[in-house]
Nucleic acid binder design. Structure first.
Lengths: 178, 178
DNA sequence: CCGGTCATGTAATCGGTTACATGATTCG
DNA sequence: CGAATCATGTAACCGATTACATGACCGG
């Protein structure tokens, strides 16, 4: 019983190119990590059920121990259906921000290092986004996907930049007033 | 078996002022909704176990059918402990962004309305943030909490602003190129 | 040859939501 | 008086992670 969310992520990724379950997870983590996540415990069952429904097929990959999954014609139809359906958002749980909100009980030094952590994460994201952007722009094979990928990426970059700017100001403000 | 995350949210909120479980949930949703969420199914069991550990006490509220929970001295000590511990972040699942990433299969019109949805949500957030900010600035009772609250709020505002700006540009770019 | 990565899959567990049951209170 | 809101609590369910079991392949 895989969820339609996972099916969408899997079919979407396979619509770009055939790959293994393992590669699927890496692709989702690296490219969509800011907005989405899937674990093996969802991907493999999802692939099995999609295979049973003939939305994907399994072939032997480069190594005999690996499977290469490809999307079928009916899988593409299914993908077009799924992408039209609204998906539930998972309510956020940003631990650092909860702690910062009650920062009075944590003290100034603790809050500053909390802010630094958040900043470092965002800055790291900014670096990987730049790399991904270059990859997409260099990739002539998927020119019709590129505008959507770049648009999605752009939100990630803007959010990360906003976070870095926030951290820098928060450091100044909290450092001064207390 | 409540999680330490929920305990932190509950004790933190009660450190501001005593309130009912119902009010607790509203407070968390309204003020921290951008970064955190708790449902009744977590709050009431958490309150019960915190009461058993004597971190909170229960008194009769304004109505006999309602309980008024207050944090105790040892509850404050517990809060200071909890706010020092790192909390796990829940991996994000932003449905609209997943769909937009595979927007080629959704088509231009669908993508634009997706972007509009995201924009509307962010714009609504911006409005509530402004209201909360005014409330905090007017509240002289909690002057020592205010810097932390405003700092947390500031990230929400910056993220929301970044999202609105992204949406406006995304609309232009996708509207033009395709 | 050995450690790291690639690779598939399952079972246990868990964190959390939802739905349900129940009832008081307030307001129009 | 009836509807909406305030209020507490539990049980069922579920989506998802984690840990585990297993093994091939590659590079140094």
């Amino acid at each position: 019983m895989s969820t339609t969310s996972t099916d969408l992520a899997v079919l979407g990724a396979l619509s770009v190119e055939p790959m293994s379950g393992y590669a699927l997870r890496e692709a989702i983590r690296d490219v969509l990590g800011q907005f989405w996540s899937e674990s093996f415990g969802q991907i493999y069952p999802a692939l099995a059920s999609l295979e049973a429904e003939e939305f994907v097929t399994r072939a032997e990959g480069s190594r005999p121990s690996a499977s290469l999954f490809s999307i079928t014609a009916s899988g593409r139809r299914r993908l077009r259906e799924l992408v039209r359906e609204p998906l539930p958002n998972r309510p956020p749980r940003h631990g650092a921000l909860l702690r910062l909100y009650f920062g009075r009980h944590l003290g100034k030094a603790g809050c500053l290092s909390l802010i630094d952590e958040v900043r470092a994460e965002a800055a790291a994201g900014l670096a990987t986004f730049a790399a991904i952007r270059e990859e997409i722009e260099a990739d002539t094979q998927h020119a019709d996907d590129a505008p959507y990928w770049l648009t999605t990426l752009d939100l990630g970059e803007r959010s990360a930049r906003a976070t870095v700017e926030w951290a820098d100001q928060a450091r100044r403000v909290l450092g001064a007033t207390k």
